[in-house]
Amino acid sequence: MSHILSLQNAGVSYHSLSGETIALQNISFHVEEGEFLSIVGPSGCGKSTLLSIIAGLVEPEEGSITTNGCRIGYMLQRDHLFEWRTVLKNILLGPEISHCLTLDKRILADRLLKQYGLYPFKDKYPSELSGGMRQRAALIRTLVMEPDLLLLDEPFSALDYQTRLNVSDDIYRIIREEHKTAILVTHDLSEAISLGERIVVLTKRPGTIKDIITIDLSIDNEERTPLLSRDAPEFKTYFNLLWKELNT
């Protein structure tokens, strides 16, 4: 398998008059094509910053990032659906901005909307959607850009527990079906284990890599879903391992 992304000793700090905040230091890892990687770490350790440098929104001050030229889609912590646009128009925001609003894109948008149960709502406004539907709409908005690598920043954190389980199942399935590579940031350990194939554990600020854990569950990889993963016998072991990593 080839690396879709690799980071070498990447570091970022934020500067302000009152001082320097080192957000990330000495981050090195790589992501393989088709992989689902989770990132966990304490609040404020630089997880969102890490996604921002991968997406190219923030330049790393040290080290380097190399991609194989893949397209990157970034789903932010909150959905930020525009209330003045219908669901469909929100989803077509990306193509509209990059002036590639072709018929193909419209067909793709319709297909994704149908496939993920939002088609009947395409002319509604975001305020009429439930939390889970909003999250799916935000994901489709990212997918319409046909990214190869998806960055997900705590996409489920705004949802209640029940919805969260369902939506994470949904989104996992969508990402698998579309054959994407994904990096998921979360502070929910169960979520990290149930979705990820590998987990990058970050330390408190300044965020450095504490460990990278490969998740090997005794479930058929083809049938794996987040809900099934939670029932795997190894799940608890990984949970305890992660818990210890984050609390020592």
């Binding site: 932010l76 990306g94 901005i97 990059s98």
Partner: peptide, 25 residues
């Protein structure tokens, strides 16, 4: 500011932030 970030993640420019997010909101 996150709205601004959203536009950038979709490949937009500062002008897109203004015309697609700031003015309508």
């Amino acid at each position: 500011e996150e709205m601004e970030k959203l536009i950038y993640t979709l490949g937009g420019t500062k002008w897109d932030v203004l015309s697609k997010a700031i003015l309508p909101s």
